Amino acid sequence: MAVHKSERLLNLLIMLLVQRHYVSKDRIRAILYPDSSTEAFEKMFERDKEELRSLGVPIEVGNMDAYFDDEPGYRIRPDEFALPDVSLTADEAAVIGLATRVWEHARLAEATTEAVRKLTALGLPLDVGALDIAQPRLSADEPSFDVFWEATQERTPVEFDYRRAGATTSTTRHLEPWGVVRYSGRWYVVGRDTDRDEERVFRLSRVQGEARRTGAPGSFDIPPGTDVRATTMRLAPQPTLTRAVLLVRAGSGLALRRDAESTEPGVTGPDDRTGWDRVTISRSGPGVADEVLGYGPDVYVEEPASLRDEVVRRLRAVVAEAS
């Protein structure tokens, strides 16, 4: 199933990223493809490697033994994977969207933990710190996310009930999904609305109930030259920009620091257990509170007051629900 494929791709990426040496094909098969036949494993492994490579993941092939070249091994070097700012294609942006929700999406978080647990149990030398390259904090809480993501990969039509902004009732829509994109703090699916025969963008948080795949995989082709992100930016509502001043615990908030407008080190923070830095960021859309909450006690909002109030309100709601 497609869910297993998504988990398998992530597990393969994690396995090759956290190990310090090349990993043999036999070991990869034993850990990630244990129930597959030799023929099925060869096909899936080659397909998975090529899919990761096509999305910008630098899988390196080398010899397991410096004196013998009969058994190739595989790895992902963290220094090559941690790329500087680059311009992403629609496909690359899509895989980043998937990768950045690994630690926040319950099902894939379990897959990540399980992959590391299996490798640790085998006594393999791991560099788990390599997983901090992205330090992802994006959430994908919409129940329909998986359905649309999987349908995009399979090129399977989707049927769903959708309620537009300001509407009191929902309507059933039919879509050939081209991609799932995070834009302005929200998740959108882009594709061809088959009822209207037009390209459309739908916000996933407005999907009512469960989205349903209808039809067989490979039922449609994505138009050549389609740029899913550009289409989303053209059709989705224009974002509003939020400027926030944050106190960030020293050694935390790597993603916040990476594109910060300014960073002031060594400031007074909410506690004295560690040092603190003042980080100023600008974000579009309503997702700033989500991002801040993802860092827990390592980030404190100084400005604006409206953002701080929203974070406090949501934290109190969590405490009230748990009590």
Rank of each mutant, 00 (worst) to 15 (best):
A2F: 12
V18Y: 00
H21P: 05
S24G: 14
D26H: 12
R29E: 07
R29H: 07
S36D: 14
E42H: 11
M44P: 02
E46A: 14
K49I: 13
E51D: 15
M64H: 03
R77L: 14
D79L: 11
L83R: 15
D85A: 14
V86I: 14
I96V: 13
V102Q: 11
W103Q: 13
E104T: 15
A111S: 10
V116P: 06
R117P: 00
P125V: 06
V128S: 07
A130P: 01
D132Q: 12
P136A: 10
R137E: 09
D141Y: 12
D146A: 15
E159D: 11
D161H: 12
Y162L: 03
Y162Q: 00
A165H: 11
T168Y: 10
T171S: 14
T172H: 07
R182Q: 11
G185V: 04
W187S: 05
T194C: 02
V207R: 06
A211P: 00
G218N: 01
F220P: 03
I222V: 15
P223R: 03
A230E: 13
T231Y: 04
R234T: 11
S252F: 15
A255H: 11
E261N: 10
T263R: 09
T268A: 13
G269Q: 06
D277R: 10
V279T: 03
E291N: 07
V292S: 06
V292G: 05
V292F: 04
L293D: 00
G296V: 00
D298L: 08
E302C: 03
V311S: 04
S323V: 12
